[in-house]
Design a binder for these strands. Structure first.
Lengths: 328, 328
DNA sequence: TTGAAAGCGATACCAG
DNA sequence: CTGGTATCGCTTTCAA
């Protein structure tokens, strides 16, 4: 690999000049500029990011921390972040924390050691001390705590809409899944639904469940054993909803006539389920993009319109809910 | 952040000594060693990977290139790679090439510039020149070309098994999906199936399809329009199979009585479909781990038992295929 | 067994 | 407008 020295020699100038041209900083005569640029092309020179990073204590890397790369919701977020960063000439180190704090610590360490200029985190432990004393900004994605800037979807509204749609379509004995207690986003959608259900003339049960694949199946079985009379289920995410749908069909429930299901997230596979899953859509890709933009604004010291960006959610009507007449 | 100088000062030794202790290289008196280690602990010193990397021209980073992070098969591979690397104290930069060569080039550039010590690639363009002239080893994952070491599952056998099971369970008019022509793995499973079907007393049709989410639905619709009399479908991957299953149920086909479906990959969601999807399982997680091990062996100049590692596939019987008596 | 000093490849200050 | 040079934090000869 050619170095800045090679370029300088070839162009017949000093490394300082090359550096200036490279970074469009300080003066450089038009002619020398051309000389340098030609040399750069001829040698196919690319600056060494490591050397740059060492001096400036800043790389062009962003750390992205995901809680569970197997849940299709997160790759979708990642795509949004990635696309936005790419447009800004930045790159991502994606870390999968796997819901384990040790892994998370380990990744944060790596991020630090590689001079990332910022972190976007969607893990479950951002409230803890892990993120303290960092010399670069942190943006939370799909997560909320008091202290960090964040991008998330409106969980209260999401829960509310889910409950409304469920009631409106006639379910009377509803099971409400409550995601991980420590996740503010999970609790928001839960609360939103609870509030709405309390006001409605329906019975409902609460079942606490994790977000992960592994637990979803067991949870689904238990649900139908304990509450066989349930005629409507508001799931905490699409993964759980898929497991529930599967189990419901297995035991011969008729969907949506006898049992309605509403998921949460709208992961790509939701529409491939059969019947396709009615769900509350979180704009995952856009959330990722917004988080990336927010982080960049912070890094560049741009004034922030708002520190916490909330995106709207929408009800996606598919086939696990019954049709009703529209009366707007 | 404390530097090696701080440690040296605190321990009352030179930076050279600290470095030696740090890397267990060269001599160091037991007492000084302790002195240094104490200082390291007290200051909570972590070596600056960037500086290290600049001097040695080697980082502790591995590049992992994925074609499509939204296809759940790939996160599974990634987990395998990640876990193995983590055990070796290495870290991953995951790049999502999105099936676009520009993105791939861009990531390879980033990998180079950040001194990765190796790349594991699962993209669709490894045959091209992108990977030439790299100063570090490349391992292909779920991909095969002549020139690079690789880890993959036995596609010929996979296709063969799928066809056997399909025929054995009584399908007579089979649609065989053929994945992307340029992917050797896709063609292997296709060929394996074709060979088997040719030998059997059945009709079959070939339909070419991509692996992506987006195209799956359209393809499914077309399939049933063009070949309504089909009674067995061998899909090119689980995503396509899910789309086909969805469409089949939508148009009222009875599964598996009237139509059997066999997928490929065994992504986590396959068992959550209803009926749950019979499929050919590729050991994705293990493939990831093996690829990581292979790469490390190459990096460490260990003798290789084999340059190309083929893992076995298995038929996972679920509910989109009919039961038959076992006669081993 | 230890330390001084020369890099690694870039940036940025300061002098000219 | 341009060039010399110290510097970023670490590793590795080479001498002592």
């Amino acid at each position: 690999m050619a170095t800045i020295r090679d370029v300088a020699k070839r162009a017949g100038v000093s490394v300082a000049t090359v550096s200036r041209v490279l970074n469009n900083k300080g003066y450089a005569h038009e002619d020398t500029r051309k000389l340098v640029n030609d040399a750069i092309k001829e040698l196919n020179y690319k600056p060494n990011e490591v050397a740059r990073s060492l001096y400036k204590k800043k790389s062009r890397l962003i750390g992205l921390l995901l809680p569970d790369i197997r849940n299709p919701f997160f790759p979708e977020l990642a795509r949004g972040v990635e696309d936005e960063m790419q447009e800004q000439g930045l790159h991502l180190i994606i870390g999968n924390a796997d819901e384990k704090p040790e892994k998370e610590i380990d990744y944060i360490q790596t991020f630090k050691q590689n001079n990332v200029i910022g972190i976007i985190s969607a893990t479950n432990h951002a409230e803890t001390k892990l993120y303290e004393n960092l010399s670069f900004p942190v943006v939370l994605l799909d997560r909320i705590t008091g202290s960090y800037p964040s991008v998330y979807a409106d969980g209260l509204d999401g829960g509310k809409i889910a409950a409304q749609e469920m009631v409106r379509r006639g379910s009377k004995r509803i099971a409400l899944l409550r995601g991980p207690i420590e996740l503010r986003t999970a609790q928001d959608r839960f609360k939103g639904a609870v509030d709405e259900l309390c006001d409605a003339n329906v019975d409902f049960q609460v079942i606490t469940s994790s977000f992960s694949f592994h637990d979803a199946e067991k949870m689904a079985k238990t649900l139908f054993e304990k509450f066989p009379e349930t005629d409507g289920i508001i799931a905490s995410n699409d993964l759980s909803a898929a497991a529930i749908l599967h189990e419901a069909l297995r035991i011969g429930r008729s969907i949506p006539d006898d049992l309605q299901i509403i998921g949460y997230d709208d992961i790509p596979l939701s529409k491939l389920l059969f019947p396709s899953l009615s769900t509350i859509r979180q704009p995952a890709y856009d959330m990722g993009r917004e988080a990336a933009k927010l982080l960049m604004n912070i890094i560049n010291n741009k004034p922030l319109a708002q520190k916490n960006i909330q995106l709207p959610v929408t009800f996606i009507e598919r086939q696990t809910t019954r049709k009703v007449e529209e009366n707007d």
